[in-house]
Design a binder for these strands. Structure first.
Lengths: 125, 125
DNA sequence: CTGTATCCGGAGCGATACTG
DNA sequence: CAGTATCGCTCCGGATACAG
């Protein structure tokens, strides 16, 4: 552990961000899982187990670590309800929500691609 | 080698594409390097060495393998000029160019993020 | 239910050497 | 110049077991 005492309170320093905005974005969401987590949280707040199911074949460990990262980056909020059994909900911060256009663009492109792939083997370009 | 005899002629089958369009897109470009290669080729055709410099710290091996993948996916064209010394140029296919909105969305978001990061440590949300 | 702690295999990647 | 071929290592991430 190493996250334990630092969660949302540590901001990424400008100094270790790449100068290129595309690269910056890629570092924040450029991973298969983070993108899918984002996609699912955009539907609204979800519990850990719910998220695990909806994301797909992700393991619990990997989901947890990705959520921790996204929390540190300020994309995700984690809310713990002191109940028993414990309940933990994850949601997007405003910053996280602001990524919507990117995910939407990816969805739009993917739909076009799948359509084409479905009706033909797309026969090359 | 294993690519050698299959370059542009093999299309991805619809059967091994995920049903979710976001996930499909993520599989095609969801890697740090592929995104940056895309970003740079969107400026126009480039030679191998040129691309290597502009992408940044990528090694030649990794650049090559990523270009091969993207070629197989139909995103990139490779043109060899039978000269000496050899010249090889890479460019985007129409499919590759159609990804522009996604990269643009990422750039736009990244710019906003960097602006905020520059003027403050954005102190949480 | 929501995690943390380990173990471990394999992919990813850098470094280097060699080729047409 | 633009690759291919290897070696070696790091670290991601899957499986499993355990805990609050």
């Amino acid at each position: 552990m190493e996250y334990a005492e630092f969660r949302n309170d540590e901001a990424p320093s400008i100094d270790d961000l790449p100068p290129c905005p595309v690269e910056t974005t890629a570092q924040l969401i450029g991973s298969k899982w983070r993108l899918l987590i984002l996609r699912d949280l955009m539907e609204g707040t979800k519990r850990f187990g719910e998220l695990k199911k909806s994301v797909g074949s992700i393991s619990q460990k990997v989901l947890t670590s990705n959520l921790r990262d996204m929390e540190k980056k300020g994309l995700v909020v984690r809310r713990v309800y002191p109940e028993v059994p414990p309940r933990v909900e994850y949601g997007l911060t405003d910053l996280g929500k602001s990524l919507t256009p990117i995910v939407d663009a990816m969805r739009a492109w993917g739909e076009g691609y799948l359509d084409r792939a479905r009706k033909t083997s797309w026969g090359g370009f």
